[in-house]
Design a protein around this nucleic acid. Structure first.
Lengths: 226, 226
DNA sequence: CGCCACAGACTTGTATGGTAGTGTCGACAA
DNA sequence: TTGTCGACACTACCATACAAGTCTGTGGCG
């Protein structure tokens, strides 16, 4: 209850550590290749080794870190190949979601989305990259929920995490972010119009756009890629 | 190396426990609603509570169990709604996979598949449900790998696990299993013919078929559903 | 007879000590 | 100089002990 300015104190220490480490990895405070250790993380966060261990195991499940038994744990490097596969899977799921959304879309979710887009547009104009990404996530969550398939979001979530890590390097400027917001609007317009093909195509372009800068980013930061 | 006849002794105790528990849950030896406990599992398998705990956490991530803090852990009941969503997501991913397979398909994987289907057909004729499912899994793995998207399988795997649990209740007879094998052949034929729409439609029907018995199964075993 | 309080036996969560395995670095011999 | 061997420091992994919360059953009271 005491105002958690930002560090949401989730239930268990393990979960808190997990979200905190995830944030740090996606935000590139922990750069790919960084060596971690249960003990160090535990000490640094003032908890025991057990929660730290469980957090690292969770992160290894979503391939944000790689734990090498009896050797150590490292932050996984960005893999172009895996990101291409990730985009492929995400495109398959999210285009299917928007297609379904054209048939039937939950009204509450539909209204929420308008608000999300508006707020996201403001953050985009302000160049607030982190808040922009937070509302981007809310948009895609509401899309899945509105289409009646929250499970789709659970599948997409981990994939999006990796894409977000790349986006941290892409350093979108305000116009680029505004363009992405406009793509969200295009998707929603197609859904409202009941145009499945148009919605799917808009989503496809949206996801393609996000990774377009990958070659440049890789050329500029080869040490972060594998 | 040394032939692991069946009880594949994976690396860590936690992982061994996880696969063993997963097998037991999918095989309905641990029925939905069963109460578990870290201590009991640890004792029963002759290890400490820690590996048992990690295994349960892993299973809770894929929603095979639900752990209620300070209260207990239960095997999740089968949810019709979630299974419908699961089919939706799986259909989205796997139809995309077969479409891509029509463009380019790895030759080694292609050859492996023929073998898988033949073996699976034999198990189907023999009415060996477990082995049938094992080769069904190998088929879908090879499909994803052959299409160059092993990540797609990782996404589908957990979903398929839940569908497999339902299939355990469906009690396919030999003709039904042979029909499913024939659907596999239809998918492959469409891929060989370079017919994306045909392949996708065949996959769609295949996945629809699997869940067709769900209403009957739910009516016969209401206590296993939520 | 019905209801409430309390005690005990559970549960998961956390902390800590000990173990086996791996890479590293330095001494030593060819 | 180079190749080899050995002690050491470090890791994740496992076992055990403790803490905190929840349900249950029971006994006393109204």
């Amino acid at each position: 209850m005491a105002g958690n300015g930002s560090g949401a104190t989730a239930g268990s220490a393990a979960q808190r550590l997990e979200t905190e480490l995830k944030r740090a990895i996606v935000g590139l405070e922990l750069r790919p290749g960084t060596r971690l250790s249960e003990s160090e993380i535990a000490d640094r966060h003032g908890v025991s080794r057990q929660p730290a261990r469980e957090a690292l195991i969770a992160l290894s499940r979503m391939r944000l870190v790689e734990v090498l038994p009896q050797r150590g744990t490292v932050v996984t490097k960005i893999s172009v190949g895996r990101l291409m596969q990730a985009r492929f899977v995400r495109e398959a799921v999210e285009t299917a979601v928007v297609r379904r959304a054209c048939d039937a879309f939950d009204r509450d979710a539909r209204e929420r989305i308008d608000g999300f887009i508006d707020v996201q547009e403001r953050f985009a104009s302000a160049g607030d990259h982190d808040s922009f990404q937070r509302y981007d996530e809310l948009f895609h969550i509401a899309l899945a929920e509105g289409a009646g398939c929250p499970l789709a979001w659970e599948v997409v979530r981990d994939i999006k995490t990796h894409m977000d890590r790349l986006c941290q390097l892409t350093l979108f400027d305000a116009p680029a972010m505004l363009a992405l917001v406009e793509q969200h609007r295009t998707i929603i317009r197609a859904i409202d119009a009941g145009d499945p093909d148009g919605a799917a195509e808009a989503m496809r372009q949206h996801l393609t756009e996000i990774l377009r800068a990958m070659p440049r980013v890789e050329a500029e930061n080869p040490e972060l890629f594998e």
